[in-house]
Design a protein around this nucleic acid. Structure first.
Lengths: 205, 205
DNA sequence: TGTATTAGAAAACATATGTTTTAATGGATA
DNA sequence: TATCCATTAAAACATATGTTTTCTAATACA
């Protein structure tokens, strides 16, 4: 007996399921049964309820009985990815079995005014930020709040923008690379504008 | 005139707004006005409606009038982040001005059965994959399709799972680290199960 | 072909829930 | 203190919507 056949969807069920997911992605809330009815070109809510029950039995959705528009999709939402375990990048470790938790990148993405920059060059290579990486940054509103060791994008007017470690010593600010081939840049606080601090690194291969 | 004061929320409005966001994150659908009423420790729906109107006027939410549970949070959804330009990680380059394009990570996330692994150790450090990084992997269905040089997670039964470069020479498979301190692992094809190939790297700082 | 099973239409029902109205309360302002 | 405004409570209303029932049409099966 195929364990998957239990959860397999009929065409009608699958069409409804895909439509629901699309609706909820667009509107951030559940559709009503009558909306699904129209979308499925039906003229009575009964078939929809039947399909919803099947989708529920097969573990695709759930809802709060009697409550309007309370569907929930049971599965990874957009930005949640199952973390299946750890991999050794040194020796070998035991295999992973099942989902441990979910990788949720939304907490970074949903922050206010997050922006991304493309990295050029290798001055941060020892911080594992490589040429071509995307760095996700949060705007810096208060330069005095930056802590030493933070990776920031800084604009030095007339010169340009750079990604470096922020280090403040006395009244001087040093922008230090994570690559010994580059010398620190020494600046007065008035000479530099800090644009963002590093939240995350994204590398697509 | 402060342009921000228009959109600033009162404590009551902010408490409701945060509660709504939390509810919708948890349930994937909108709460009802009476639920909000109870959550805000009120005994009548009128104050909630007043606060919702203010949230709407200030551009935080919207809904479909007369329809139950149709709230939407107005904010940049999901997975599109403005790319403001490049930063030098070498010398200095010109500053960035405006949005160049958007970083869309959904193409990776939306792939079928993508999963994530936590990286342990430093054997891939020269590939800029550091201890603690999350690697996003696509399942490998056909081991013969793996190209030399791909980074894969491989299960060596009885030993464990590891993240390495895949290299095939003749009838032997070599799992090579990106760190000269680690020796390649030499295997026969029958000894190893390939689970995923690297799609992207995610590092939250 | 005839029967059983399923899907759909139609109508009616129950209620969850948005909306409105009115009055009471509390806080700010003059 | 008196007045005004915003907030809340209470009640009532309208309807969107989940649910149930009954009947018919379509489909599968023997």
């Amino acid at each position: 007996m195929d364990t998957f056949s239990d959860n397999r969807l009929t065409d009608a069920q699958n069409e409804l399921y895909e439509w629901i997911k699309d609706y909820m992605k667009n509107f951030q809330h559940s559709p009503s049964i009558r909306q699904m009815m129209y979308a499925m070109r039906l003229k009575s809510p009964a078939p929809i309820q039947s399909r919803l029950k099947h989708l529920q039995d097969k573990g695709y959705i759930k809802w709060q009985e009697g409550k309007a528009r309370t569907l929930q999709i049971i599965e990874k939402i957009s930005d949640v990815i199952p973390i299946l375990g750890s991999v050794a990048a040194g020796g070998l470790i035991e295999t992973y079995s099942d989902v441990q938790e979910n990788l949720d990148i939304s907490d970074v993405l949903k922050q206010k005014d997050v922006f991304a920059l493309t990295v050029n060059g290798d001055s941060m290579i020892d911080a594992c930020i490589a040429d071509g990486d995307m760095v996700l940054m949060a705007p810096i509103t208060n330069p005095y709040s930056i802590r030493n060791g933070t990776i920031v994008s800084a604009l030095v007017p007339g010169l340009g923008t750079t990604l470096k470690y922020y280090v403040k010593r006395g009244h001087k600010i040093f922008l230090e690379a994570a690559n010994p081939n580059y010398d620190p840049i020494e600046l007065n606080p008035a000479e530099v504008v800090f644009q963002g601090k590093l939240l995350a690194v994204w590398r697509k291969v």
